[in-house]
Structures are given as C-alpha cells and as structure tokens.
Design a protein around this nucleic acid. Sequence first.
DNA 1: GCATCTTTTAGAATAGTTCTAATCTGCTTG
DNA 2: CAAGCAGATTAGAACTATTCTAAAAGATGC
Lengths: 136, 136
Amino acid sequence: MMSGNSPDFTERLRAAGLRPTRQRVALARVLFEGGHRHVTAESLHAEVKATRMPVSLATVYNALNQFRDAGLLREVVVAPGRSYFDTNTGHHHHFYVEPDGELHDFPSDKVTIAGLPSPPKGTRLSRVDVIVRVHR
Amino acid sequence: MMSGNSPDFTERLRAAGLRPTRQRVALARVLFEGGHRHVTAESLHAEVKATRMPVSLATVYNALNQFRDAGLLREVVVAPGRSYFDTNTGHHHHFYVEPDGELHDFPSDKVTIAGLPSPPKGTRLSRVDVIVRVHR
DNA sequence: GCATCTTTTAGAATAGTTCTAATCTGCTTG
DNA sequence: CAAGCAGATTAGAACTATTCTAAAAGATGC
C-alpha cells in the first residue's frame, strides 16, 4: 500500500523505466513539483538534503544522468566544467548570463532559424541549440 | 636582430599585447599557420611537443586563455568537461558530432535567426551561439 | 650587461564527475 | 509475509580537466 504522499512521482518514474526509490522520488519531487528549473548536481544535492532526506552526491549524479537518458531532463552545456540540467524538455533555447552562470529559458515558438546547412555526410540531425550569451 | 623565421607571429602577439616568448610563438605557429583549427589544451600540447619545442601543459592552458582574452581564439563549449578553442574568430556556428566530439564550423552568412527575444533587463547581448548536434 | 618585471615550469591543488565494492532496499515469488 | 535477488545507494577512492604556487628562466629597457 502506498502513502498517497506523491503517487505522481512514483508513477512518473515507473513510466520512465526507473524504480521509484526513496531517493529518486525525493529528487523528482524537488525537480518537478514546481515550475521549470535549472539545476546542477551540487545545487540539487543541497536542495534535497534540506528536505531531510539523506541522498549522497553520487546518487544525485546517477539520478540526473538516468533522468536525462529517460527524457525527463535535458542537459544544457553552456560553460566549461559545469553541467546544467533543465526540467523543461520541450523545444526552447537559452539565455546565459555571464559571468554569473545564470540560465533562462525562452520559447522557440517565435524563433525561426533559416539557412542551416545540411548535416555532414553520414550523420543525422539530433538537436539545434541556440545559446544567447549576454553580460551585464 | 631577428631570425626571420616567423616575424608574423611575433608581431601578431605583440599587437595583441602579449610578449612573443618562444613558447607563445611556437603555439601561435601551430595554431595559426594553416587553415582554421579546433584544438583542446591536450591536443595542442601534443602537437607543439612534436615540434620539439618544450612547452608545459600549464603554459598551453595559460596561452589558450590569454589568446582567447586577446581575441585571437574563440572558446566553444559543446560538451561538459572539455573546452575547445577555435582559431576562427569570425561569425560562424558549429556542427557537433556526438559522441565522437568532432567539431565543424559552418559560416553564418546564410543563416538567419529571427524572433529572438530581447536580453533580460540589465544585460547586453554578447554573442549568439548555434550548435547543431548530429549523430551517426 | 644588469635590473626588473614577466613568463614558464613541475608539481601540488582544486573542481566536477565517475567508479568501486560493500551494504541496503524494492519488488517478486512461494 | 519471509526469503531471495536484482538493482540502487553509499562513502570514499579515483579520475579528468584545469588552475595555482613558488622557484627558476627569460624578455625588455637602460
């Protein structure tokens, strides 16, 4: 019998092919229960620890990678030596504020990109990332 | 009296406000004497060592950062945990072949991006990066 | 050629991430 | 609902990329 505390996350994880362990459910709750978020492994670790559920940093890394592989998260590469994960997996692009490291989504609805060359021979398009870098 | 061996690089470095030391000249030669290139610190280190000019890895890192700050190189962030430097500092974008890590330039002449939102309040546009991710 | 300020260097240090091997937990079965 | 098993978690070690440190070497101005 389940607690009724967060059946949504339990189900969502199961649907993604991941066992709904305490840690993964706790992480999913932090990640997905509000609006869209950008996190790093460190920031997520700090947040989940604040909920008094003990989760190791290794588990945070494991979970982020699994969530990304399962399509629950999208990894955004904007700066060397730091990975951001975005809970918004839909089509959109990013503002990156240097040097703070702040990241903001913007929808791709209104953005049109024309004239892109076709992929190199033997390759298929996988994604087009647009990063608008701004500074203060 | 100068050797006449590579006055171009010596001058180019001086013009960029950098003392033309042996190491920096050797690195500049490897980087700039052919066509446009993409390098990592490690790959550049291997190349310059092959020219029999001893240069430490720390110096390669220093030089890459200085060259980038001086506008001689552009840093391209495509994958977590690895920095690429591009000798092409003009307007252009990139194909990134996953999972090999291969990077190819393409000119931005024919590419038009319309409908980008304006930068967040208090910030100014610094650059728009387009990364076209492809796989085999 | 000397003095000075910059650069280089080897190696240590740091940051972010992954790995290892032991322990634990969720799920299935009887 | 106990037992068993596969998969998950953990602390800490290991690893990779990069930066730092302090000492030695080199470039430049006089």
